[in-house]
Design a protein around this nucleic acid. Sequence first.
DNA 1: GTAATCCCTAGTAAATTGATAGGATTAATA
DNA 2: TATTAATCCTATCAATTTACTAGGGATTAC
Lengths: 139, 139
Amino acid sequence: MLSKKTKYGLKALTYIARRGEDTPVQVGEIAKAEFIPQKFLESILLSLRKSGILGSKKGKHGGYYLRKEPSEILMTEVMRILEGPIAMVSCVSLNYYEPCDDCPDEALCSVNKLMIQVRDSTLNVFRNTTLADLSNGNQ
Amino acid sequence: MLSKKTKYGLKALTYIARRGEDTPVQVGEIAKAEFIPQKFLESILLSLRKSGILGSKKGKHGGYYLRKEPSEILMTEVMRILEGPIAMVSCVSLNYYEPCDDCPDEALCSVNKLMIQVRDSTLNVFRNTTLADLSNGNQ
DNA sequence: GTAATCCCTAGTAAATTGATAGGATTAATA
DNA sequence: TATTAATCCTATCAATTTACTAGGGATTAC
């Protein structure tokens, strides 16, 4: 299941991208528009800022803004920040590989074999989808 | 992340399929061979039996066996039993659809749009993979 | 009848999730 | 400079899920 954190994060990014203007967007505005608990959203946007997707401006009239064009923000990056590894088991993770302690031979492991395929097909979606794709009306 | 339940379940099914013989396999044998806590595995195999994937024989020399040929056991079925819905959000689930309570219009929802693509690509893998594929050495 | 096996229900510790609380810091503006 | 409005940061917490464990009942081979 997708965590609420990821769901809220994606909705917030889409909101900012759709808005389009170059003034920063406040957390409160997004929270109200997307029905997201404000304090929770605060922490989510903070992590997106720390990861370099968002920039922020403090103080009055502050808020968050995209640091790149929506068409340059890949879902691989966003999903890894919000949801963590894309692979369903660490032994097939590209970025966070760890062997299973109970598996004597990955080459013989049926779970490994299946999860590599799932990982690749999911990656294929995320690599070919940008925030611009999510924000636009088309497909 | 894939739950241990699913991981253990897949390993157990693969073990039974690879064994090939028509005598039932005991939980203890699988647990020992695959390093799975026996009592936990018991409950997993029980749920696979209740779902019709496995049959069982009680009493001495009892155990579990496949009710279909490995080539006829699709991953869609196995994963739904072990892991639950394949979709990452209920609003794109084919078998367990439920609308999100915070989403006024699915057609405009970026999460919905993205997760439909992920669901379809994952389904494509599971629909084209059988237990026989996991059990064989090839690919 | 005894041993070996599946069947079933409960319970439980640890981790994760989805928040909330409370305030420190920063910046615009009057 | 004082006020206000925003981000930033840490800590905490209840509910849920996960990954088991315990204990025994039911069934069957021998």
